[in-house]
Design a binder for these strands. Structure first.
Lengths: 349, 349
DNA sequence: TTTTTTTACGAAAACGATTGCGGCGAAGGA
DNA sequence: TCCTTCGCCGCAATCGTTTTCGTAAAAAAA
């Protein structure tokens, strides 16, 4: 390092003041005269003084930064959420540290501990598919670390949560398929330990029941790794297609599952939606240029990120312990495209 | 905070040792007896002692973490690079801090300064589309911060760089279109100040020249924001289609530009590849399910991330100043799909 | 003038860890 | 017996900042 950053000590020496006086002057303390403040501020500005955040962090135990743990950023839903998080965070003068759990329980633990030891002021997290136990987060929460959950939440920790209306989104998607005349609607979803899985599954089942049908467990496939491992999705799909009463439509519960399923069906030369209709939860910005274009349950990802961050900042900056927690549920939007349209089939065929 | 993390001081107090003895014991110093070391290690393990990274960072000026600046994580190329970065970084026991410039020069500056002030030990960066001046990085580099550039590089700073063979990739893409019989090949690309833009443009032109054609500037459109602003791409496309000699093929130079162009052409009901052929630089994992499936120049993104990180760690951990710098050029791969196949058209039409 | 209050600043401890140096006791050499 | 050497450990400074407390000098009150 040739040019070291300027410190309070340097300013103090240059102006023949003490370190403490400079510090107070910079922070605008009332015990420093206006004149001294001006001198210090002027000098600081001239030499581009920036307080060392590491030292501040050590001293104050706060860092003006928030940690984010998502399973994977390579996914339009999460990257949109992160954009929402960053927009509010920067507005409130917080920095954002993004980490990926890659759907791994181990990495979720190590990421959360690392972020905590880095003195992040709060945590925004969507649980990994492998996570069945949240003791690691309970521990941090009890230590006083504010946490906001989004998307994949837990009820083991009493705090703010932000989710999409997964139940209703799944219900509408399934009902849409039914309205299109599909009879045997399968459901490919993520790990059964995730909140979103259960909520979406419930919505799917309810829609079937409301149509006078009985949900059939053979039509419901869980993928423990949420589509991160392709073979898993392929096998689920193969099993569905091996059933005596093959499904004539599939409702996929996540971004990765949707694209993998679509891709695999096409590789198998199965025509969509003629042979199999498809609706998926996805925030892919390319869903309209898929072949066929994919009917999607879209979550308000950006808004979810913004909201989660606002709630987190409230927690962080609250003077008194917060006891009143919100569970914010945002509505999804069903965007109907070709992959689920029977009419589309009829036109063609 | 109810349960504070255990510190060296706590251990010292509990074992009736001094803080310095404990510190040395934990680091395995030879000036501490084996017996004492054992006691300390045992106690530390029992109470799950973790050194405070903030304090270490302040004391040592190093943080065992590396900063990453990319324009946008919502992009398969960059998210794959980041996966490569994380895989090596974790292997080498470094943490990764990801930030987004959103193609903004201002944000690139503030991100780089913030990362530097957080004592990252090194920086991996792909320049923003707006960046024409790299003084902010020169300053950090002269201060001694190791930097590795990838993808969008600069020759203003003498250090390691990792790029794809953009020239050759563009050459092959263009040649492929020519071989398919396309005559008037347009090129939609990013900001002219980016290295990748110039390299890809050169490859495109060379392929045309080698085919006995003269590159025509009216067929070359620059998008300053690299596709982040849709209107920009739309206008470029509109201008191309307004030309007296409309292009019969387009070669797009980036992920976002490719998907936006494809989407827009479809909205305009322009048939691909019959009316317009399309080849794009993209690492989208969904390129095969696009409509039509998109012929792509694919970069070895994961490998680029891994390599950049290995080079960075070398710089960080080198005892002596490094003076020999590498420019690593990795080969791209042309994946041919329907969007560029004249044969495909003939079959259909 | 003396006492009290106010103003404006400095000294020092603290955050948690690292490290050069000094010291003390025991062992070895003369 | 005395001196040196060495092993083992503690003291104290340090990183850059914040904050409590103490204290001069100046201002106000007596």
């Amino acid at each position: 390092m040739r040019f070291e950053a300027i410190t309070i000590k340097d300013i103090a020496k240059a102006l023949h003041l003490s370190v403490s006086t400079v510090s107070k002057a910079l922070r605008g303390s009332h015990e420093i005269s206006e004149e001294t403040k001006k001198t210090v501020l002027a000098y600081a500005r001239e030499f581009n003084y920036k307080p060392n955040p590491i030292a501040q962090s050590l001293k104050r135990g706060r860092s003006k930064s928030i940690g984010v743990i998502v399973c994977n950023i390579d996914n339009n839903f999460f990257s949109q959420v992160i954009n929402g998080i960053e927009s509010i965070a920067h507005q409130r003068d917080y920095n954002v540290i993004i980490t990926q759990s890659q759907e791994s329980y181990e990495r979720e633990i190590s990421n959360s501990e690392h972020l905590s030891s880095r003195n992040v002021d709060g945590l925004i997290i969507s649980l990994s598919a492998e996570t069945k136990n949240v003791d690691h987060l309970v521990k941090l929460h009890e230590k006083g670390l504010p946490i906001v959950f989004f998307d994949r939440v837990t009820d083991k920790i009493h705090t703010h949560t932000v989710i999409a209306n997964n139940y209703k989104g799944a219900y509408e998607a399934t009902r849409h398929l039914l309205q299109q005349g599909f009879q045997r609607i399968a459901h490919i979803t993520s790990s059964g330990s995730l909140s979103i899985t259960l909520e979406r599954l419930a919505g799917y089942k309810k829609a079937l029941e409301d149509a006078g049908m009985v949900p059939d467990d053979r039509y419901i496939k869980f993928c423990q790794h949420g589509g991160m491992i392709h073979e898993e999705t392929h096998q689920a799909l193969a099993e569905l297609l091996d059933l005596p009463d093959k499904p004539d439509a599939i409702f996929t519960a996540s971004d990765r599952l949707s694209t993998t399923t679509l891709s695999q069906l096409r590789k198998m030369k199965i025509e969509i939606p003629r042979q199999i209709g498809l609706v998926g939860f996805t925030n892919s910005i390319s869903a309209d240029i898929f072949n066929p274009s994919l009917t999607s349950v879209v979550q308000p990802a950006l808004e979810m990120g913004r909201l989660a961050t606002e709630l987190l900042v409230q927690l962080i900056e609250s003077k008194r312990p917060v006891t009143q927690f919100h569970k914010r549920v945002l509505e999804t939007e069903l965007t109907i495209r070709d992959s689920s349209l029977r009419k589309f089939v009829q036109t063609k065929g």
